[in-house]
Design a protein around this nucleic acid. Structure first.
Lengths: 204, 204
DNA sequence: GTCTATAATGGGATAGAC
DNA sequence: GTCTATCCCATTATAGAC
């Protein structure tokens, strides 16, 4: 993409129309699901007619593609930095869990779309990267869990597969109820989640 | 429904054609989502043409309605029996958690449909019972949590709302990976989940 | 960058024959 | 209980005017 190919004169707004439309689409996809959001819904919310959307995007799929791909690149960059650090296995996991809650806070729509629609989207070739990154994620987290058991930081009497899924699910499912700007900050939620996860909820 | 209105001669099979078709629909709805499953998909899987489905059911919505309503009635009957028992608050919760994992095992498709599509379905009047039962569920479980904190069975330094959601989510999200007949039985999964939940995953 | 107009497809549902 | 035939509508996407 050359500088010349990126027009930014006329209207002036630094975040162009394209980004606005993408943000509107993201919110609708997250709220109602990808298939249940029509291009007319998106156009209505943007105050234009559906045909006009195609001046900015190839297709509805292109919109969700751009949203998910951009978000996932950022998130994995954070994970990779943590993985490369010199923390203990458990501390790396804790750090990644905090990154994940931050992602739920800062990229709420994208996480919700991923949670709700990635199975469906993965049936199309262009979204082959979704299952690929899922595998990378699983290898990373599961590997850290095994290291943390080996190093004595975690209990060794639990099924590691099950703990992995417990960990993964408890983090990401929070997108269904967490609302940015609510009573608890993402960091506070992460603290309590980690406390429950590590120490349990029973007393004594 | 009089006995005369329930034909069961000819083919003989005790579970009628209607139940077969319902089971086929349940599996497809669970796998691909309600909106992403066409009546033609269902008919194809049953080896008939789409029009023929309408001899048995009013509409696609009627099918999913019957599936969810029947399942939820059974489940809540179990919860109510537990609530009426003389167990401690925490023991009641444990029992309900075990009931829930059994439901994931025995009514896998219905739970998956509920998890994936109830938000969408709830936008229709006929599914008003979904949010209603959600509220009942929440009152029940949240109430037991508060009682268990008051009785000293559970930690009192955690946000009860957050613990409630943690509890609810960790149970039901298991439907995304649990497969009936797999390596771990539903009872074994429930044991490990409760162990993690109550005691945490950290060592020492 | 948006509108008008419209093509093309897919999907839910119906009526009556067999 | 299933098939044939078909209707009707919603939805994605396109072409060209403004």
């Amino acid at each position: 993409m050359s500088a010349a190919s990126t027009p930014r004169a006329s209207t002036g707004s630094a975040t162009g129309r394209r980004e606005q439309l993408l943000a509107i689409a993201a919110q609708l996809f997250a709220e109602k699901g990808f298939r249940n959001t029509t291009v007319r819904d998106i156009a209505d919310a943007a105050g234009i007619l559906s045909g006009s959307l195609y001046h900015h995007f190839d297709s509805k799929e292109s919109m969700v593609d751009e949203l998910l791909d951009t978000f996932q690149r950022e998130l994995f960059a954070e994970y990779d930095a943590t993985a490369a650090s010199d923390l203990t296995p458990l501390a790396k996991l804790e750090s990644m869990i905090r990154s994940s809650f931050r992602a739920i806070d800062e990229h709420h729509s994208e996480v919700a779309i991923f949670q709700n629609d990635s199975t469906y989207l993965a049936t199309f070739d262009r979204f082959a990267y979704l299952p690929e990154r899922n595998e990378r994620f699983e290898k990373l987290w599961r590997g850290l869990l095994q290291e943390a058991v080996a190093s004595g930081e975690l209990r060794d009497d639990l099924d590691v597969d099950l703990v992995y899924r417990f960990l993964r699910d408890t983090v990401w499912v929070a997108v269904t109820w967490y609302r940015p700007g609510g009573a608890l900050s993402a960091a506070q939620v992460a603290d309590q989640y980690l406390s429950i996860l590590l120490k349990g909820i029973s007393r004594g």
